[in-house]
């Protein structure tokens, strides 16, 4: 999985039927100094993430299909977690409650 930040909400009514009922959020993958790294990814939101939240995304089609309970769905990215805190070498580099991050 990757650490990313929710940047935009995407609304689409004319879309493949598997996306019905899911909200779609655009996320920006982050490096560990919380800078943008890599291109933005459009994910289905499985955990109710909000704007600017630090989340964990999964970019593997078969895994996302399993999470949606589908076999052959054209979905290949999903937000699977909202990050509370990140620790590297016993040092907390991110804490959602105090949000001393980027």
């Amino acid at each position: 999985m990757e650490i990313a930040k929710v940047v935009k909400k995407v609304v689409s009514t004319v879309k493949n039927h598997v996306f019905e009922g899911y909200s779609m959020l655009l996320v920006q993958p982050l490096s560990m100094d919380f800078k943008a790294c890599g291109s933005e990814v459009l994910c289905i939101d499985l955990v109710g993430a909000g704007q600017d939240e630090i989340v964990m995304i999964m970019k593997e089609g078969s895994g996302v299909n399993d999470l949606m309970g589908l076999k052959e769905a054209p979905s290949d990215a999903a937000i699977v977690g909202i990050v509370d805190h990140i620790v590297i070498n016993d040092k907390k580099i991110f804490d959602k409650s105090s949000s001393e991050k980027a």
Partner: peptide, 27 residues
């Protein structure tokens, strides 16, 4: 996954347009 939107047949495709976007906004 780009082959999946085409029911029954799985064309050799690695990119498929699967939705038209109404809005992209920051909340």
């Amino acid at each position: 996954e780009a082959a999946f939107p085409f029911i029954k047949k799985r064309p050799p495709s690695d990119a498929a347009v699967i939705g038209i976007i109404d809005s992209i906004r920051s909340e």
